[in-house]
């Protein structure tokens, strides 16, 4: 029952998002003009600013929500965060390399995203090599180790910033935002969302079976090791690309699955699609809120989601703590 409702809400949020901005624009005329290739101010605003921003917010949110649901299911831990794969920090390091060393100059505005994707991929590869064929819980340790390594490298890069502007640019980028990005970013994000989503959705049975532990899942004929690696790969792809495109947007992957769990009877396999949709709605709503705030220094989307997410996270830890007392 919750899935159709979320699809509807996602559509409504996306549509509403097109109406929110600093200037008054005829939304539908602008969209039609842009689609038909007519030159007009509203076509420019819709095609270059609001549509890419809305679509990016939706896809980034979907990617984060889905990866969170998948990782929490795999690790059987409601506090698991998609950043655990090391992919987020890897992506940040990749993007930092662009700001400082100017790699991929031919890619233009997409360069940080491309380098971020590369960084995420490398970090993920290292993490998988380090975790080896050991139990899934090792993934947390390996992810933490790689995150620490990439975090240290990122700190070193910041330490030796060539000039304050490069540093400021990087720091703002790391705060997370879907503003000032174009449809070319969507071309990076959408295939990753589809492929990562596909990898995770093929392992739905495994997520369900793992509810009772790895022993039971194996005895139910599920390939825990291979399936687990596919889920991590899919999640890292989703998180890495999201961070590469939009910077760090925290807590979405952690909180969204948790909020939805009671509505789907706590089944990890039924949590995937609703989490993707709710993640999309949440990030899009948060971005609308960012745009609705008074003009001036813009509050970054990642900062807002963290400000909202952190108290929820604290409440979650509190509740979990009481459960185990």
């Amino acid at each position: 029952m919750i899935l159709p409702l979320l699809v509807f809400l996602c559509g409504v949020t996306g549509l509403l998002s097109l109406f929110v901005g600093s200037s008054e624009v005829a939304v539908f005329t602008g969209l039609t003009d842009w689609l038909l290739g007519r030159d007009s101010v509203s076509a420019l605003v819709m095609g270059e600013i609001r549509l890419p921003r809305t679509l990016l917010a939706l896809t980034v949110g979907a990617a984060l929500g889905l990866s969170g649901a998948a990782l929490q299911g795999l690790l059987r831990n409601p506090l698991a965060d998609p950043g655990l794969t090391g992919a987020s920090q890897g992506a940040a390091l990749g993007a930092a390399a662009v700001f400082y060393f100017g790699i991929f100059p031919q890619a233009g505005a997409v360069a940080p995203a491309l380098a971020g994707l590369l960084g995420a991929g490398l970090a993920m590869l290292l993490m998988l090599l380090l975790a080896g064929s050991a139990r899934q819980s090792m993934v947390i340790m390996a992810g933490l180790a790689i995150s620490t390594l990439t975090g240290a490298l990122l700190a070193a890069v910041l330490n030796f910033a060539p000039n304050p502007y490069a540093m400021q640019e990087l720091v703002f980028w790391l705060l997370g935002s879907v503003a000032e990005r174009g449809l070319e970013h969507l071309q990076l994000l959408l295939p990753a969302l589809l492929l990562g989503g596909l990898l995770i959705f093929t392992q739905r049975k495994l997520l369900y079976g793992l509810s009772l532990g790895e022993q039971v899942a194996t005895s139910l004929g599920l390939s825990v090791q291979t399936g687990g690696r596919l889920i991590i790969l899919g999640a890292a792809l989703l998180v890495g690309t999201s961070v590469a495109v939009a910077g760090a947007i925290g807590f979405v992957g952690l909180i969204v699955p948790h909020l939805l769990r009671p509505f789907i009877g706590n089944r990890p396999d039924r949590l995937l699609a609703p989490s993707a949709l709710a993640g999309a709605i949440l990030v899009c709503l948060a971005d609308m809120l960012v745009r609705l705030l008074p003009p001036g220094q813009e509050l970054k989307l990642g900062v807002l989601t963290s400000l909202i997410g952190a108290p929820l996270f604290i409440a979650l830890v509190w509740k979990e703590r009481k459960r185990w007392l």
Partner: peptide
């Protein structure tokens, strides 16, 4: 197979 120790990670019905 019914293992010796069993626990559900989630509050499944």
């Amino acid at each position: 197979y019914l293992p010796q120790r069993c626990q559900s990670a989630w509050a499944l019905s």
